[in-house]
Simulated assay, not measured.
Amino acid sequence: MSEPTRNTPPTPTPTPTPIRFFGTTWVSHDNGYGLRRAGVAVGSLAAAAAGCFVLRFAYEGLAIADVGGFVNVLLVAMFAICSAVAFRRTWEGYTRRPDPTTEATLRSLKGIGFVGVLLAYFFRSLTEAPGEKLHRTEYETAVTQYERRRGTRTGNPAARKKNPKRR
């Protein structure tokens, strides 16, 4: 067995977590951050509109099949409720870390309510990069902890006085 070395490298400085479509430009809002936000907002709104268009075709298909008014109402209510729940869960996920097990169970609901997810993405991108607040809080906490750890290390540890041996 080899003995662990005493000269361990210092912990690396914290690095920001990249956000989809933004990379790490959210840290200092540079390299086209504003244009990216505008592009993401327009893209998510266009995707939500396209999704609504596809849902309209599905509804018309059921109307052509003449399945009845009850099924039509159930379909509209299902997509409306799933979209509302997906919007709320997505919106909350931008400010705090969601529970992974809960997110796994709600994955299919978010798939059905994809219009709500896209609308939450659109509205969040009007004020910041989606998830920026959460990532910024985590990054600033990591930087603060790193600075605190670095600040306590002063001087050469080899030059410090050794404690007398206890017998």
Rank of each mutant, 00 (worst) to 15 (best):
R167G: 12
Y59E: 14
V54R: 09
R37C: 14
G131Y: 02
R160Y: 11
A84E: 00
A86E: 06
R89S: 00
V85I: 15
S83V: 05
L134N: 05
F87L: 03
A86G: 05
T137W: 07
V143P: 03
A104Y: 02
I112D: 07
L126P: 07
F57Y: 14
R160K: 15
A58F: 13
T90K: 02
R88L: 11
V27Y: 04
F87R: 03
A120H: 04
F122W: 03
R148S: 12
G93K: 03
F22T: 05
A159L: 15
L118V: 00
A104M: 09
G69P: 05
R148A: 14
A38G: 09
R97A: 15
R153H: 13
N163R: 14
H29K: 15
T95K: 01
A158Y: 13
V143R: 08
Y139S: 03
P157K: 08
F70N: 08
E92M: 01
S125D: 06
L109Y: 05
D99Q: 03
R124N: 07
L126S: 03
G116H: 01
G34T: 11
M78A: 14
A120R: 03
C52F: 10
G113Q: 00
T101M: 09
V85M: 02
K133L: 12
R96N: 03
Y33Q: 04
A50D: 06
N72C: 11
E128F: 00
E132I: 06
L109R: 08
Q145L: 13
T95W: 02
C52P: 00
Y94K: 05
T144C: 06
T141G: 07
Y59Q: 13
A65Y: 06
R97N: 10
P98S: 12
A50K: 09
A47T: 11
A86N: 11
A80E: 04
N72H: 15
F22W: 07
Y146W: 15
A65D: 09
A48I: 05
G51F: 08
F57R: 14
I112K: 05
R150I: 07
V40M: 08
A49L: 15
A129G: 01
A58W: 11
A104G: 08
L106A: 10
V27C: 06
G69A: 12
A41D: 02
A159T: 12
F123I: 01
V85L: 10
K161P: 12
L35G: 14
A80N: 02
G116D: 02
V42D: 00
P100M: 05
K110A: 10
F87W: 04
R96V: 08
R97T: 15
V27R: 06
A159R: 14
A129I: 01
T90A: 01
R149M: 12
T137E: 13
E128A: 08
R56N: 13
G151Q: 10
E60H: 14
L118T: 00
T127N: 06
G43C: 06
E147I: 07
K162V: 14
A104R: 15
T137Y: 09
V67S: 05
I81N: 00
P130R: 05
Y121P: 01
V85Q: 00
G69L: 10
F123D: 00
V117E: 01
A86K: 00
L55G: 10
W91N: 04
G155C: 07
L126I: 04
V27A: 01
A65T: 04
S125V: 04
L119A: 02
T154A: 11
L109W: 10
L62Q: 11
F114P: 03
E138Q: 14
C52K: 08
F87I: 00
S83M: 02
